[in-house]
Design a protein around this nucleic acid. Structure first.
Length: 409
RNA sequence: GUGGCGGUAGCUCAGCUGGUAGAGCCCCGGGUUGUGGUCCCGGUGGUCGUGGGUUCGAAUCCCAUCCGCCACCCCA
């Protein structure tokens, strides 16, 4: 028995109505906010992610699907959506278009994680990017877009955590202060904290050990060490979020796992806050990213939103979606098969969703199937006549020639 | 990658300390009925995740492996 690869999953027909609802709403809102769809390859040069995510990031260190093609080129299945979109932006000269260039994509992402609920090796993401403007209103816009998505879909229990991690101006000075503090408190750091400090000092704030956390409460926070420009930017973002009516909590220790983030960073935590897969969307500003991959200095801001996790959130909130129903089911009661097929063709040509039995069912079985299909009307074809059965109404005998007009809406 | 728990019919599960596999739902047929719902009768469907081992005999015990879930790790 061959199974789907570990960490991948099938989205079955029974899941599709809810998926459709989610993705359709994503596309509707993106269009409404002026974002245009873009699609990029599933795989990219490995260096694209190494350079942008950071050599020390978990993604690059242990989560990338890397392979070599027959020509000896080294590629990676995309682990995140921002770098590829920025690559396309540079490669196709989108910096020559009016700025900002507002883009989105719905695409699969690949990470070699240990799978769990809501955490897959292949998963779908909505990526929204506003490239080419440093205006704090663009930060607020993309955040507002996702906040609106949650609201329109009916998610009630969620929290937006917001932070600013500074930029090239203020972060080096801050890191010096942090490191000095860590040196002075080496005795309270456990092995985990020391390891994090090695790879990415900011991440020491992610340590779970209670005693370390307690000690870190007194450590300098990036949010309190911003340079004037970053502080001003952050204040503006907050003011604009307030104007949009977006609620948020300031999370001074919120740090993201990718190196390219500057200034604003955020995470949306969904209804299932207890589990490890509680983050349903996360993003930030990346003012140095485009330059990093060889483009002109270009600011940008955006986010990724996990679709599986959002669908899970909707289910937790008790939100479902109806499967599309058939308009007409054609049952055969002694009439030749050809009559049913001709009628089906006629109905479908007229835009009426129609189907019939292909399982050799008894009439009873066909009527059961008609019921299941959700069809409002059932046509029962007899040798010389036809019966129209409309849900909730009495059967009526109809001439073959008048079926279409009686059934069409 | 580390640790813990779990895999029996399409689905949800039962199967006690080893004795050759069951229920409900689903699906198909039939009876009843207002030709579909209800109710009733019958039927299809299982390499007990996989591979080894112990045993006269393994779904049950042991080992390995795959997959899932939970906690780390990290994130969408």
């Amino acid at each position: 028995m061959i199974e789907a690869p570990r960490g991948t999953h099938d989205v079955l027909p029974s899941d599709q109505p809810l998926w459709q609802r989610v993705t359709a709403e994503m596309e509707r809102l993106c269009a409404l906010y002026g974002y245009r769809r873009i699609q990029t390859p599933v795989f990219e040069a490995v260096e694209l992610f190494q350079r942008t995510s950071g050599e020390g990031s978990d993604i690059v260190q242990k989560e990338m699907y890397v392979f070599e093609d027959r020509g000896g080129r080294r590629f990676a299945l995309r682990p995140e959506g921002t770098a590829p979109i920025c690559r396309a932006y540079v490669e196709h000269g989108l910096h020559r278009e009016p700025q900002p260039v507002k883009l989105y994509t719905l695409a699969t992402m690949y990470r070699y994680d240990k799978p769990q609920r809501g955490r897959y090796r292949e998963h779908w993401q909505l990526s929204v990017e506003s490239i080419g403007s440093a205006d704090p209103a663009t930060d607020a816009e993309v955040i507002h877009l996702y906040d609106t998505l949650l609201r329109t879909l009916g998610v009630r229990r969620y929290e937006l955590q917001l932070n600013s991690i500074g930029d090239r101006e203020c972060r080096p000075a801050y890191l010096e202060r942090l490191n000095a503090w860590l040196d002075g408190h080496a005795d309270v750091l456990d092995a985990e904290a020391r390891r994090k400090r090695e790879t990415s000092p900011l991440r020491v704030f992610d340590v779970k050990t209670p005693s370390v956390r307690a000690a870190l409460a007194d450590a300098p926070k990036i949010g309190e060490a911003l340079c004037d420009a970053c502080a001003e930017h952050f204040a503006q973002v907050r003011a604009y979020l307030d104007a949009y009516g977006v609620r948020y909590t300031i999370a001074p220790t919120l740090v993201r796992g990718l190196d390219y983030y500057t200034r604003t960073t955020w995470e949306f935590v969904g209804p299932d806050a207890s589990t490890q897969a509680s983050t349903i969307s996360a993003g930030g500003r990346y003012d140095g990213l485009i330059e990093e991959i060889g483009g002109p200095p270009t600011p940008g801001v955006g986010f990724g939103a996990g679709i599986e996790r959002l669908v899970l959130s909707l289910q937790l909130e008790g939100i479902g979606a109806e499967a599309p129903a058939l308009d007409v089911f054609v049952a055969l009661d002694g009439a030749p098969r050809e009559d049913a097929l001709r009628l089906l063709a006629e109905l479908r040509a007229a835009g009426v969703a129609a189907d019939t039995d292909y399982a050799g069912r008894s009439l009873r079985g066909q009527l059961t199937q008609a019921q299941r299909s959700g069809a409002r009307d059932t046509i029962i074809l007899r040798p010389d006549t036809a019966v129209l059965r409309r849900r909730g109404e009495r059967d009526i005998e109809v001439a073959r020639s008048e079926i279409l007009e009686r059934v069409a809406r």
